[in-house]
Design a protein around this nucleic acid. Structure first.
Lengths: 134, 134
DNA sequence: ATTATTGCAAAAGTTTTGCATGCCG
DNA sequence: CGGCATGCAAAACTTTTGCAATAAT
């Protein structure tokens, strides 16, 4: 049985009130302005719980820490392979995935994740800078 | 300038000779049978290098360590949210992603990653077991 | 000879967890 | 009250890195 907690509500509200994709630590720093005594462990525990419930999204980028998203409508993410930044790509429509489990598959399909990967504008400038400096 | 190394070749051959999706540590244990002195650091360094070159794929599951794939033709992965296992899903065709960068985007798109997520058969049985035991 | 690569071990970075205390139902 | 959630700190885990030695070109 899940009980109400001020901390969890604060974390959820925080994520729902922004359109970026903060890491657990960024959520922690942000929520700390309202709940100065909250601990990083509590933030991790609640982010995991909220993601399990589908109230937020957890985004694993393959570069650095996981990111989280309070905006749960289907949309595509761009992930920078260089710095790990996550950017919404609403121009690219979310796919209509055939929700038909393949034969011979004994698990259950719960959803899918589509990430566009590449390099963000900021990292592109940094890389071209360092090429010049070389 | 990249120089040849026995260790790197062994790692690449190992990944190309299997159709599962081992973690760095699993590759290490496997390669160690041929190269007993290889170190885990070397495995990590070479996996990163090979993935950058596109000779292998790096798969971030969001559950535990990254996995690697020596089979680089476009295909879709199923990822178990419970245990992190990666399974090939060749029945589901890889998408033809419009390779048109959206306007107002100042980065570069290098590719995309599609993962089907859910629970694998093994974890399903475990979960149903634990429900009975409760 | 030069420089990339290695093995080793330590460090860094992220996330989880044990436990005593506090808060919700 | 009973049990979930918290804060704190330690631990666990994964990955990276510094450095001296080794191997490739």
């Amino acid at each position: 049985m899940v009980k109400y907690s001020r901390q969890r509500e604060c974390i959820l509200k925080n994520l729902q009130g922004r359109r970026d994709h903060p890491t657990a630590d960024m959520v922690y720093e942000s929520v700390r302005m309202e709940q100065p005594n909250i601990s990083l462990g509590t933030v991790y525990r609640n982010l995991a719980l909220l993601a399990e419930n589908g109230q937020i999204l957890k985004i694993s980028t393959g570069t650095g820490p996981d990111h989280f998203d309070g905006y749960t409508s289907p949309h595509v993410h761009f992930v920078c392979r260089h710095c790990g930044k996550v950017i919404d790509m609403e121009e690219i429509p979310a796919i209509n995935l055939i929700d038909k489990t393949p034969a011979h598959f004994d698990g259950v399909i719960e959803g899918y994740e589509l990430q566009i990967v590449g390099k963000c504008g900021a990292c592109l400038s940094i890389i071209s800078q360092s090429l010049i400096t070389q």
